[in-house]
């Protein structure tokens, strides 16, 4: 604001308008809400993480003890971190690649394109609760359709939801199903917006389909790639609904599925903070640790986007 005060003369009013007053008016709602409902809770969680508190009674200041506990004794936290990253790695990259490949094969479809795009969006808009229930039904060991088909073909049914490795695969499969169509539709949209002239020029130069794809289509899709990578990172790191809904359905439900193999960071956090032993202080410490993990990954993401920014200014 000092800066604007220094400017003098008639111009000052207008300058002030456009560099302080209006920006402030337009930015303020976001900033206020951001501070009040997003930033403040996180800061307050950090404050809570230095305490031992179950939500009732006095908060007891314990310093960094919660953090020490996480790093020395809490193997479950690290397990949930590993699970999340593993689930992320085995599901999102294949979903992106498959989505891209299908889109590449299909992008010269003209008729019914919007229809196909909408249809392939459906998994993405289906409520996670429903997806959890349906997959539970498909993969049940004794009555599920998948095992009945396997048995019908003469094989032996698998314990999809009771075996740690298989349970992770089911979750990954669920993510694949949810996102492939979505990514495909996005890529399809991106590809069709690339000017046909470029392709014509490439054909004249004698470039084959594969080369055209790698040296023209893919680079031009960089913005959409970044968009997809960033949004799937956000989604993947927050994974909670689907595993929780699949493995937390009955009276003897197990937190995190078989051997806690599907316990994601968020589920662990939710369980620690609100589960059978309510420890809001400790839960907050877990949240702060997740925050740091995500921050590190975000900075990498930011660099990616920063790269894009520079490119544009060139």
């Amino acid at each position: 604001m000092n800066h604007s005060m220094k400017t003098t003369g008639k111009k000052r009013g207008k300058h002030w308008d456009y560099s302080v007053k209006y920006p402030l008016i337009f930015v303020l709602p976001f900033c206020i809400c951001f501070f009040a409902f997003n930033l403040f809770p996180i800061i307050y969680s950090f404050f809570l993480s230095l305490h031992d508190w179950s939500g009732v009674g006095e908060k007891k200041y314990v310093g960094l003890q919660n953090y020490i506990m996480i790093f020395t004794r809490d193997k479950i936290f690290f397990k949930s971190l590993r699970n999340t990253l593993y689930l992320l790695l085995i599901s999102f990259p294949p979903a992106i690649i498959i989505g891209l490949l299908i889109a590449a094969f299909l992008f010269n479809i003209k008729r019914l394109r919007t229809f196909f795009q909408t249809v392939n969006f459906l998994p993405y808009i289906t409520t996670p609760v429903a997806i959890g229930l349906i997959f539970l039904f498909l993969f049940d060991r004794n009555t599920g359709i998948v095992n009945r088909l396997i048995e019908g073909a003469g094989g032996e049914g698998l314990n999809w939801l009771g075996n740690p490795g298989l349970a992770q695969l089911v979750i990954a499969f669920m993510i694949l199903w949810k996102y492939i169509g979505y990514y495909m539709a996005l890529y399809l949209a991106g590809m069709t917006s690339i000017s046909q002239d470029i392709y014509d020029a490439a054909r004249v130069d004698g470039a084959g389909a594969v080369r055209t794809f790698f040296s023209i289509t893919l680079p031009l899709l960089k913005p959409i790639n970044i968009f997809i990578i960033v949004t799937s990172l956000i989604g993947g790191l927050q994974l909670f609904d689907e595993p929780n809904l699949m493995f937390n359905v009955s009276t003897t439900s197990i937190i995190g599925g078989p051997k806690r193999s599907c316990l994601t960071m968020f589920w662990n956090f939710y369980d620690v903070a609100f589960g059978s032993t309510a420890r809001l202080g400790y839960g907050s410490a877990v949240a702060v640790c997740i925050f740091i993990v995500i921050l590190i990954i975000s900075v990498i993401g930011l660099c990616l986007m920063g790269g894009k920014e520079e490119r544009k200014h060139e």
């Binding site: 951001f34 997003n38 809770p41 960033v230 927050q238 949240a287 925050f291 995500i294 975000s298």
Partner: peptide
Amino acid sequence: YRFRFRSVLKKLIMLTMMVPVQLGIVGYMI
């Protein structure tokens, strides 16, 4: 507009985009 803290705000938005708000749920609840 070109205003002070514009680039700071931009960076902040990109950062918050990736940090899920649910992480602060305990604080938010209180």
